[in-house]
Design a protein around this nucleic acid. Structure first.
Length: 368
DNA sequence: AATCCGTGGGT
DNA sequence: TACCCAAGGAT
């Protein structure tokens, strides 16, 4: 590209080239994360294990770094390789994922591991297209794995990158309409050298400096090469489409307790809301309609006593769940299984279900 | 293309 | 309290 005699900064260094100051900043201020290979090593050609990159990236989809760390280490401990994960019981994977949310990720994680183990000899594809063909890997994750694990110049665009780019360009086009423009800008900015570090530098910048509220522009390595900062209104970007109001739904949950303290559980349908996860019996609420909110919807006749109401906020609706408890009951689980006090904390119970059980039996779902 | 899919922390 | 939103993907 550039001829050897050219000055370090010349006319070919367009205003789209902000990778150099960004990478210099990343060398000094990068975050230390368990799945990350630090720049001191990547500079010497050391690349992270694609399995670990993939595992972390899937967990990080719409999920904060703080929430992911413990799950990541637990998964790595239980299943150190993609072959180990492929050989695991799906139910064990769902249990390990419980509480992290977006449970289709866990189902696809298992499917993806099986595909890599069985169809790719246990090695992840090293191209964006190959990666994107796998379950649970979309545009972002394919680009991230390609860049970070295989050093390919992929345009990695996540929420952080969208914020950094729209602010730097003072982009008046709202999301998601602006996505193609953002992708193009990033594609033109990816350096031939260190594309993986560039991707992670953009995300670190968005997470620590170019934050959603009160960005620390005075500390930003991009400096005044940012229209949002120069205009004094970086925080106004990115513009977003108006959000829709989320409805509140009503329902009931039933905690049946046996004499030995076991609780009746059942399995939710494999797809949809909390798909494939476990639950206590509930009335038929969902995102679009209320369920019966009193004891008339109980799974069997018993002395159901009210334990109050819990509130849980999903992505697209709020649920108010009236919780009832009965016990000791002696009834063969028609449709589920009895989970004893030692097992209950390890069941594949989503947070809303733990919350309901806690309302009926305080402490019942807490581990050790 | 718009909708569906969790959860917890920050402000 | 209420709202924001986080390393998005599937349909």
């Amino acid at each position: 590209m550039a001829c050897p005699d050219a000055p370090v900064i010349d006319a070919t260094a367009s205003s789209d080239d902000f990778s150099a100051p960004l990478l210099a900043w990343y060398d000094r201020h990068h975050r230390h994360l368990p799945w990350r290979t630090p720049p001191a090593e990547t500079k010497h050609g050391v690349l992270p294990d694609p399995y670990r990159v993939w595992l972390s990236e899937v967990m990080l989809q719409q999920t904060t770094v703080g929430a992911v760390q413990r799950y990541y280490l637990d998964f790595l401990d239980a299943w150190p390789t993609v072959d180990a994960l492929a050989a695991a019981e799906t139910e064990d994977v769902m249990r390990a994922w419980a509480g992290l949310g977006y449970y289709s990720r866990a189902r696809n994680l298992k499917k993806c591991a099986e595909a890599v183990a069985n169809d790719h000899a246990g090695r992840f594809p090293d191209t964006e297209a190959g990666l994107k063909a796998l379950p649970g890997i979309g545009d972002y994750t394919a680009a991230a794995i390609a860049a970070i694990a295989f050093n390919r110049p992929a345009a990695v665009v996540d929420g952080n990158v969208e914020r950094v780019v729209t602010r730097r360009a003072a982009m008046e086009t709202p999301l998601p309409q602006a996505k193609p423009m953002i992708r193009e800008i990033v594609a033109n900015a990816v350096p031939d050298h260190r594309p993986g570090d560039f991707a992670q530098a953009m995300m670190d910048l968005g997470a620590t400096i170019c934050t959603p509220r009160r960005p620390a522009c005075v500390l930003c390595p991009i400096g005044t090469d940012c229209a949002g900062r120069v205009l004094g209104e970086a925080e106004r970007f990115p513009l977003k489409a108006a959000k829709i109001e989320k409805p509140t739904r009503q329902g009931a949950a039933f905690v049946a307790v046996r004499a030995d303290g076991a609780v009746l559980l059942r399995k939710r349908p494999p797809r949809g809301l909390l798909g494939g996860m476990s639950e206590v019996p509930t009335s038929g609420w969902n995102a679009r309609s209320d369920g019966v909110a009193d004891a008339s919807a109980a799974p069997f006749a018993a002395e159901w006593r009210s334990c109050g109401t819990i509130r849980h906020v999903f992505t697209h609706f709020t649920l108010e769940l009236a919780v009832f408890r009965a016990g000791p009951v002696s009834r063969a689980g028609a449709d589920g299984w009895w989970s004893g006090p030692a097992d209950l904390p390890h069941e594949a119970l989503p947070s809303v279900m733990k919350k309901a059980i806690e309302a009926a039996i305080p402490g019942a779902t807490s581990k050790s």
